[in-house]
Simulated assay, not measured.
Amino acid sequence: MKKDFLRVFDLNQNEFTYLIKRALEFKANKDLHETLLSGKSIGMIFEKPSTRTRVSFEVAIYQLGAHPVYLSSKEIQLCRGEAIKDTALVLSRYLNCILIRSFYHKTIKEFAKWSTVPVINALSDEHHPCQAMADMMTIFEKKGKLEGIKIAYIGDGNNVAHSLIEASALTGVKIHIATPQGCEPSAEVIEKAKSFTEIKLFHDPVIAVENADVVYTDVWLSMGEEEHIEKKEKFKNFQVNVKLLKQAKLDAIVMHCLPARRGEEITNEIIDGPQSVVLDQAENRLHTEKAILEFLLAL
């Protein structure tokens, strides 16, 4: 029976922990897995622009011995109104796995419903599970553990926040979230996660960051929201800067999933500073995606 990875909660605790461990092994032994997926072809459907997701997946697929097939949504028949069902059923005859970066999570769910091969969510409006996997790998690398770690997430309650909440629930990480009024994460996500770990919501970032091991932020406006000036105004006191970071632990690390709007949600001084781990975080997308692909296709 095929398995999809559409949100973090598609995995259980043991599976998530295994994937972090496996990603660390891939990172430590970069030249020892070039034939794991030999002969397989992985489709990559992209509706939205991408830097890290596209490159990390394409390189991961290649380094595992498989063949990446890039499919811009503007160049396949979906753009002319072909039914998702028909596209999914046909591509399943050609490909061994399909990853989709889509504007709408419902599109990915519909595709996965009809696909007979595994489907991976490479980002949707509701979830970004591959990012959360790399985030937890990075925290483990820097802190030596996950359980009991406190993350302070400062910013919009968006897809990144949703996946970070679910990943925290599977690893015992405590997560404190600070958003402006009206920008909180999905109640459904919080409700599912809160029985597994400590989740607290704040509208004051200073309180959320107090004694944090990790300070995490993301852009205030997601792709497609750039013109929402009124929403952007709500975040003016939610910048990760020197003053705010002083409220966290002295050895706190700073994370950002990128791309960053420097000078908005985070200052240059912080993102380029000694506590920033954003480049390690970005690199770890490559290693966690190898683990995900192997898990769905080779185990």
Rank of each mutant, 00 (worst) to 15 (best):
K290Q: 13
A167I: 09
K109W: 05
A28H: 06
L146D: 04
R22T: 14
S41N: 12
L71T: 01
L286G: 10
Q13G: 04
I292K: 00
L170I: 05
M255T: 11
C97P: 03
F238R: 06
M223A: 00
L89E: 15
L146H: 04
L95K: 09
I100D: 09
M137W: 01
I253S: 13
K231Y: 05
D156Y: 11
L32Q: 12
H105Y: 02
M44R: 06
A167G: 15
H128V: 06
K142Q: 15
L279S: 00
L64Q: 09
K21N: 12
V215G: 08
L164R: 06
S195V: 15
Q63W: 01
I149Q: 07
E227N: 15
A193S: 14
K21L: 07
T17F: 02
V55C: 05
L245C: 11
Y94L: 00
I42H: 03
F196K: 10
K109A: 12
M137A: 03
E289F: 03
T17Q: 15
I20N: 13
C257G: 14
E198L: 10
T51L: 12
P259A: 05
D156K: 08
I266H: 03
L299N: 15
R52S: 07
L95Y: 04
V278I: 15
I45F: 11
G43E: 06
G148H: 13
V254D: 05
V254N: 06
G65P: 10
E166K: 05
L146R: 14
E210M: 07
I266F: 02
E233C: 02
I149R: 01
F46L: 06
F196N: 11
M1P: 14
T51Y: 14
N12R: 08
N211A: 06
